[in-house]
Structure formats: structure tokens, C-alpha cells
């Protein structure tokens, strides 16, 4: 461990004496104390919410002129061709919009109507039944098939 005494010839008594002669750098806490006191006084007569709202309504902004900034930005966007950038990026919000209750109800109704329409039409099995098509498995297991045909014919 290194010794904190930078001067090896200096005794403890010398160090203490030297330390007593040293003085701190100038400290000014006036602004900090003032701020703290102001904070204490302002909090003691704090406004109510209604008063704050009323006072806020009376406040108005300093005049703003963004004409040149807007023009510069629009020209820059037009030059770079990025003017429609956010319109293109809107597809995500369009997808989200599809999940809103109106669209969901519409989708469910459309699906229900679709199912009704499908149920009303002839099924594949019905058409098979009406036609001359013979299902190999069905035919294979009939008694006639057992008598007349070799099962391996259907393979």
C-alpha cells in the first residue's frame, strides 16, 4: 500500500500543521438556498387544480412562424421523393383497422353466409352417388366384387 504522505521527510505533526493552514475553495450556496426557499414558499400557497387550469387557459404562445421551415422541408422531401413515405407505411394501420369490431362482425357474417351457400349446394359425395363413378374401395368390398373380381385388379 502506498503512503498518503507525499513528502517522506514530513512528520505527522508537520502534516497536521500544514493541513490547518489550508483553506477551502470559495463556496457560494446563495442561489441553491434561495431556490430551495422559493420552492418552500411556493408549495405552501399551492394553486388548486381549477386555478391552475384557469391560469393555463390565459397563457398563450409566442408567435410562431414555420413558413420557411415547412417550405424547406417540403422541397427537400419532394427532391428526395419521400413525400408519400408515410402514406406507403400506412399498410400496417390498414391491417390493424381490419381487426376493429365492425370488420370482424362483417367477416363473421360473410363466413356464415358462405357456409349456408356451401351447405345448400350438392356435396361431392352426392355427385358421386348420382354418377356412374364407382369408388374402388366400396366396389371391392361388395359381395359381387368378391365373387367376380380379383382384389388386386384395383391396385
Amino acid at each position: 500500500m502506498t503512503s498518503p504522505n507525499k513528502n517522506p521527510n514530513q512528520s505527522w505533526t508537520d502534516m497536521v500543521a500544514a493541513s490547518r493552514n489550508e483553506s477551502p475553495v470559495h463556496v457560494d450556496v446563495r442561489s441553491a438556498v434561495r431556490a430551495e426557499l422559493e420552492s418552500l414558499s411556493s408549495s405552501s400557497n399551492q394553486q388548486s387544480w381549477a386555478e391552475m387550469v384557469a391560469a393555463s387557459r390565459n397563457e398563450s404562445p409566442a408567435p410562431v412562424d414555420v413558413r420557411y421551415a415547412v417550405r424547406a422541408m417540403l422541397e427537400s422531401l419532394l427532391r428526395s421523393g419521400n413525400l408519400r413515405e408515410d402514406a406507403e407505411a400506412d399498410w400496417t394501420s390498414d391491417i390493424i383497422r381490419l381487426f376493429n369490431p365492425g370488420f370482424v362482425k362483417l367477416g363473421v357474417a360473410a363466413a356464415f353466409v358462405g357456409m349456408l351457400v356451401l351447405a345448400g349446394t350438392n356435396s361431392v359425395l352426392d355427385s358421386e352417388f348420382d354418377s356412374d363413378y364407382a369408388d374402388p374401395l366400396v366396389t371391392m368390398n361388395t359381395v359381387e366384387a368378391d365373387a367376380e373380381a380379383e382384389w388386386s385388379d384395383w391396385l
Binding site: 404562445p61 410562431v64 414555420v66 421551415a69 415547412v70 408519400r84
Partner: peptide, 21 residues
């Protein structure tokens, strides 16, 4: 946003969005 610099940015953004739409 009562701060002048941020307020100017917001006003500017509003007009840029308006032009785009």
C-alpha cells in the same frame, strides 16, 4: 407542449403531415 422550440417542431410536423394527406 408549451416550450417554444418543441412547439415549433410540432407545428411544422402538423403542416408536413397535412401536405402529405
Amino acid at each position: 407542449c408549451p416550450h417554444q422550440s418543441d412547439l415549433e417542431d410540432l407545428v411544422q410536423d402538423t403542416f408536413i403531415k397535412a401536405y402529405r394527406k
